[in-house]
């Protein structure tokens, strides 16, 4: 059971958070210009990384802010927490 460090509230138990899946998926600015394949890639295809995975969390039972985390999906170690619209720290990416 994870301890997640909310950038606004500090370390809290996993039960307070909602996982939002892969981070850094940008919604296409012009969906109508995309092919069906390109659109399906945005909507459905996911990295599902084994290892350090960049993902989103929401502190849904707390401050309700979204943020990003870099978590190792094998060990569940959290390597970094960073703001939602930031890029991952250099040592991670």
């Amino acid at each position: 059971m994870l301890v997640i460090e909310c950038p606004w509230c500090g370390p809290r138990s996993e039960e307070e958070f909602t996982n939002g899946g892969e981070a850094h998926i940008k919604r296409p600015s012009k969906p109508s210009a995309l092919s069906d394949e390109e659109w399906a890639d945005y909507v459905f295809m996911r990295k599902n990384t084994k290892g350090i995975f960049l993902e989103r969390w929401s502190h849904s039972s707390g401050c309700r802010r979204w943020f990003n985390a870099a978590r190792n999906t094998i060990t569940n170690e959290i390597a970094a927490i960073y703001h939602i619209n930031e890029k991952p720290p250099k040592e991670i990416s």
Partner: peptide
């Protein structure tokens, strides 16, 4: 469980 994992183990809650 609620988050992606390859760890073959889950949370107590």
């Amino acid at each position: 469980d609620s988050y992606n994992s390859y760890g073959q183990r889950g949370s107590l809650n």
